[in-house]
C-alpha cells in the first residue's frame, strides 16, 4: 500500500482522537465546575455523594468506565446501547469532569478568605466577587495542572479503541497485522505535534497571566 494512502488513513483515524478530545473538553470543563461546587457544598449529603462519585471515577481505570458505559446496559438486560463513539465520549466526559473538578476545587480552596472578605466589605455581590475578584486568581492557579491533564487527555483518547472506535492506534495496529510496522510508530508524530501545540498554548496562557502574583 502506498505511503500516502496509509498516512491519509492515519489522518482520518486521528480525526476521531481529536473529536473525542474536543467534545470531552467542551462538556467536561463546565461539568467539572458544577461537580466542584457540589464537592464544596455546605449541604453535607450532597457533598458526601459528590465526593464518593469522584472517588469512584478517579479510582477506577478509564478503560473500565468506557467498557461499563458501552456494554453495561446490554449486560444488565436493558435494551439500550449508546453508539460506540458516544459511549466513549460520555465515559471520557465523566472521567475528566471529575479530574477537572478536583483541580477547580484545589484552585478555589487556596484563594485566601481575605479576598472574599475584602470584596464583601466593599459591598460586592457574591457573583461580583466570584467573577471580578477570585475567578482570574483561580484560573491562574489551575492553568498548570489543567495543562497537564489536557495533555494526558489527548493521549488517553486511544483508550476508546477498547470498544472498537477505530482511532489512530487501532488503525495503525491493523497495518501492523499486515506486516507494516512503521505506521504504528509514526502515530507518535501525531500525538507529539498535538501535544506540542497544547504545550505552546498553555505556555502562552501562563505568560499572559504572569502580570500578577496570586
Amino acid at each position: 500500500m502506498e505511503t500516502s494512502v496509509i498516512l491519509t488513513k492515519l489522518f482520518d483515524a486521528f480525526f476521531l482522537n481529536c473529536e473525542i478530545f474536543f467534545k470531552t473538553l467542551l462538556f467536561a470543563l463546565p461539568l467539572g465546575l458544577i461537580i466542584s461546587f457540589g464537592s464544596m457544598s455546605n449541604f453535607k449529603p450532597l457533598k458526601a455523594l459528590v465526593r464518593t462519585f469522584v472517588w469512584i471515577i478517579r479510582g477506577t481505570p478509564l478503560m473500565l468506565q468506557v467498557i461499563v458505559i458501552f456494554y453495561g446496559p446490554g449486560l444488565l438486560g436493558i435494551d439500550f446501547a449508546f453508539p460506540r463513539m458516544t459511549a466513549a465520549i460520555i465515559a471520557f466526559i465523566i472521567n475528566y469532569a471529575c479530574y477537572f473538578s478536583e483541580i477547580y476545587r484545589g484552585g478555589i480552596e487556596v484563594i485566601p478568605r481575605g479576598q472574599y472578605e475584602a470584596g464583601q466589605v466593599l459591598g460586592m455581590k457574591k457573583g461580583q466577587i466570584f467573577f471580578k475578584v477570585t475567578l482570574i486568581q483561580v484560573i491562574k492557579r489551575i492553568v498548570p495542572p489543567m495543562g497537564n491533564e489536557i495533555i494526558t487527555l489527548i493521549k488517553d483518547t486511544a483508550l476508546a479503541n477498547i470498544i472498537a472506535n477505530k482511532e489512530i492506534i487501532m488503525m495503525s495496529k491493523e497495518f501492523a497485522t499486515k506486516g507494516l510496522i512503521w505506521p504504528l510508530f509514526s502515530t507518535a508524530i501525531f500525538f507529539l505535534l498535538f501535544c506540542g501545540i497544547l504545550t505552546l498554548l498553555f505556555g502562552y496562557i501562563e505568560r499572559k497571566l504572569n502580570y500578577f502574583r496570586a
Binding site: 481575605g114 466589605v121 475578584v133 491562574k140 500578577f212
Partner: peptide
C-alpha cells in the same frame, strides 16, 4: 470601611 491586617488587595 475596613482595612485588614493583611491588606487583602486584589492581586490582579
Amino acid at each position: 470601611g475596613l482595612v485588614f491586617q493583611s491588606f487583602n488587595l486584589f492581586p490582579q
